Amino acid sequence: MPLMNGVTHSILRVLDHLQERGDEVLVIAPSAHDGEAAAQVKGAEVHRLPAVPLAGYTNVRVALGGVYRVKRILAEYAPDVVHLASPFVLGWRAAQAADQLGIPTVAVYQTEVPSYAARYGVPFLENWAWTRVENIHLLATRTLVPSTFALNQLRGRGIPRVRMWRRGVDTARFSPEKRDAGWRATVAPNGERIIGYVGRLAVEKQVEDLAALTGIPNTKLVVVGDGPQHAILRDALPGALFTGFLGGDDLARAMASFDLFVHPGEFETFCQTIQEAMASGVPVVATGRGGPLDLVENSRTGWLYEPGDLSAMRSRVQDLVGDDAKRRAFAAAAHASVQGRTWPALCADLVQHYQDAVAAVPAVACPTSRKGAQL
């Protein structure tokens, strides 16, 4: 089972689409933490590289080896295009290997890794990390970004050939119809308004900022997710209910049963959970930086607040939990705003980006074979 996050989720949906099209796909990925891994995922062959766990994340693996190993794999498979999913370590090797082989690459900027440096107490690594990001995307035939913020961020750093590719949302799975009165009664037996967060419990998500919501009358904070900050956050948010990781129908039920969704992270290039909350008919309060700028419309589908202004976050939450009519109006607008953002439509756009990248490197292109590699 791969580590489930926004990047993994989008990769799986892309693999579904490519399988339906009849494309041949090779996935190159780090070895699994338990030593066991499927030979295929969503119809795609999987090639595992030796890997070690990232400190603090036993499920996050960093592949070992150099460019030559990846180059050998790509040369043998001979794909028409290489998809670099949130590249940084393995993706950097793949970008170099594909460039040396003359194979077009589509690199997807999904994670603002350099900005994590200060949050993790190593701000001196930020410039190095940006250099790595720039080198990867300078080599790429095409770079895809999920938000206007990310587009401007990379173009401001001189990255060429950048295009927008947003994320789809499953509006059948995430729906107001999944709201569950029984679940709500269990979580908030006194009829409290339920404030929810869904995501990894990691430093870069700034979940501890939710402590600013402590003491708002008639509310219950519910934190859905797991990660290395779990124990620390339990201490920081003693009144919150921690559900642990939820997936499938359990996640859809919890999301739709919230009254309000709050996401305090400042380093989201997109933020898929915001889109899932909106599809569930739940208004959002989020930071006014990164992906949320495109997703949340102030005073219509939710509220944005200035990064770091936790008093503003608290007042925006109070505004919505204290006004049932306004909250319902925001919820209806949020739900309507994401209709039509289907994964099939977004994946069809991605295939067009593949085709454009192949056309840009005609000497190696073999568009009729429909083979690709994902890293």
Rank of each mutant, 00 (worst) to 15 (best):
Y68A: 15
M4E: 12
P217T: 14
G43M: 04
W183G: 00
Q110G: 12
A329V: 13
P30C: 08
A331Y: 06
Y120D: 11
F245S: 11
V223C: 11
G308C: 10
F330S: 05
Y57L: 14
T342F: 00
Y120Q: 11
D323G: 09
Y354T: 00
S311I: 11
P176K: 02
V60N: 04
L260N: 06
L310G: 10
G35Y: 08
P50D: 14
A95Q: 06
E276L: 05
V60A: 14
E297V: 15
S315P: 07
F174R: 01
R328I: 11
R193P: 02
D319C: 06
A325Q: 12
A236Y: 07
Q275H: 03
E268W: 09
R316M: 15
T269W: 01
R132M: 14
E192I: 08
E112L: 15
V223R: 06
W165M: 09
P189V: 09
F261D: 06
P87L: 03
F124A: 15
P283I: 14
P228D: 05
R370N: 05
G56W: 02
K220Y: 04
D209H: 11
R93G: 05
A212F: 08
A359R: 09
C366E: 13
C347A: 12
T148F: 04
H83R: 00
S299M: 09
G281N: 02
S147A: 13
Y354H: 03
R13M: 10
A94V: 10
V145F: 00
A97T: 13
G66Y: 04
E208C: 04
D23G: 01
L84M: 06
E266G: 03
N135G: 11
E268C: 11
A359T: 09
L84A: 02
N298H: 12
A212G: 09
M255L: 14
W165C: 03
Q272N: 14
D323A: 10
G199A: 03
Q339S: 08
R234K: 15
E208I: 09
T171I: 13
V285D: 03
A94S: 14
G121K: 01
F242V: 08
A334E: 12
P160K: 05
R132N: 13
L54I: 13
V187N: 10
L101K: 01
D309T: 05
V70E: 00
R166D: 07
G91N: 05
E126W: 02
D249Q: 13
Q229T: 06
E266N: 10
G227L: 12
G308H: 08
V52N: 02
V285G: 06
W183L: 15
Y109W: 05
